[in-house]
């Protein structure tokens, strides 16, 4: 840095001119008394506090706005009916046969889409096809929705209206299927249609860590989703919905994603060694300077923590030891989100 006062740079200019040394200077504590902090004032392992607001969209069946720092995401869930007669190669679900049929995946009952709005960050330009980032995020969200088995598909089935009254049919169905497996009930209870959930995520502002925010928004929106009670009317041969009764979706668990980026002291790290920092919940500046990122999806029910996904690529710093540390960080992040939802 220049000694003359006229040549001294403001920190904003420094960060624009050479972001890597700028972040490094912040992280490398000048004296041992002050802990190393990031350019945004957070500690390396400190995540941004999430704020969640649900049911803000009036025309969606469920919606949520999630804000972590300057990253703001809105997610809307809209259900539409899909007749089984319109599905090619349709096979009636048979609960006794087990896992061979995956209706949600086979019939595309979950349709997530992520859009990075123009202007949410300077690098997203108007009038261009979806960026690689948007497509990658959509794929990751789609994979996680299916691999985590978050949604109970039986709640998306629409049955023919039978003699019994409508109230409590959801619970009634399951009970009946359990206790009598006769052919007559199964044919009566044939699935006539499905709810297809269109899950649209829009980034209002983007300041790093898009996956965690998008996933939290989807989770909160799905928890908020209430679908009208629907049944197949054989006389009119169409799906009808009852205007009053709305049923929430049944979700299994509360998976939360935590992303961390690895910042290396050298811009071009040589083999092995070198100082590095794990930056949990990176912002946009940090994401641009880090090659390696780790995302861990955990759910911490009372029975014990389970991991629902790990994605680690772009570097060789994180090994099994660091991965366990990050799993711990993910657990505390899970508590943050749990509190933010309730």
């Amino acid at each position: 840095m220049a000694t003359s006062s006229s040549l001294t740079l403001s920190s904003a200019t420094f960060s624009k001119l050479s972001p890597h040394p700028y972040l490094l200077a912040n992280l490398q504590a000048s004296d041992s008394s002050s802990p190393s902090a990031r350019t945004n004032g957070r500690l390396p392992q400190q995540a941004r506090q999430p704020y969640i607001n649900t049911s803000s969209l009036s025309h969606a069946h469920g919606s949520a706005v999630v804000r972590t720092g300057d990253t703001t995401v809105i997610c809307g869930v809209r259900g539409e009916t899909l007749l089984t007669s319109a599905v090619p190669n349709y096979r009636a679900p048979d609960d006794s046969s087990g896992a061979t049929l995956n209706e949600a995946r086979d019939y595309d009952l979950l349709v997530p889409n992520i859009e990075l709005a123009t202007g949410c960050a300077p690098n997203f330009l108007p009038g261009v096809p979806p960026t690689t980032l948007a497509q990658t995020l959509s794929t990751r969200v789609y994979s996680l929705l299916h691999s985590s088995k978050l949604l109970n598909v039986s709640g998306l089935r629409i049955y023919q209206k039978d003699g019994s009254e409508l109230s409590g049919r959801q619970r009634g169905n399951e009970a009946m299927e359990e206790d009598d497996e006769g052919d007559s009930t199964i044919t009566e209870r044939a699935v006539k249609a499905y709810w297809v959930l269109y899950i649209d995520v829009l980034f209002i502002s983007f300041d790093g860590n898009p996956f965690d925010a998008a996933w939290a928004a989807i989770l909160a929106a799905l928890q908020d989703t209430k679908l009208p009670q629907a049944y197949w009317d054989p006389d009119r041969e169409m799906v009808l919905c009852s205007p009053k009764k709305r049923l929430p979706l049944t979700l299994s668990g509360f998976p939360v994603a935590t992303t961390a980026a690895v910042f290396t002291a050298k811009e071009k790290p040589k083999k092995g060694g070198g100082q590095y920092w794990i930056l949990v919940d990176p912002d946009r500046l940090e994401e641009g300077l880090c090659d390696e990122t780790v995302t861990i999806v955990v759910d911490c029910p009372k029975e014990g923590t389970k991991v629902l996904g790990i994605s680690n690529h772009g570097g060789t710093v994180v090994g099994p030891v660091l991965m366990k540390e990050l799993a711990k960080a993910a657990e505390s992040r899970w508590n943050d989100f749990r509190k933010a939802v309730s």
Binding site: G304, K306, L308, I310, N312, H313, P320, K324
Partner: peptide
């Protein structure tokens, strides 16, 4: 893994514990 035995990429999905991940690793 790289030829220097460092973990370069890991993608895991499904339901597992860190113990199972360790075994898989």
């Amino acid at each position: 893994f790289t030829s220097r035995d460092e973990l370069l990429l890991n993608e895991s999905e499904g339901e597992f514990t860190m113990q199972e991940w360790d075994n898989a690793f």
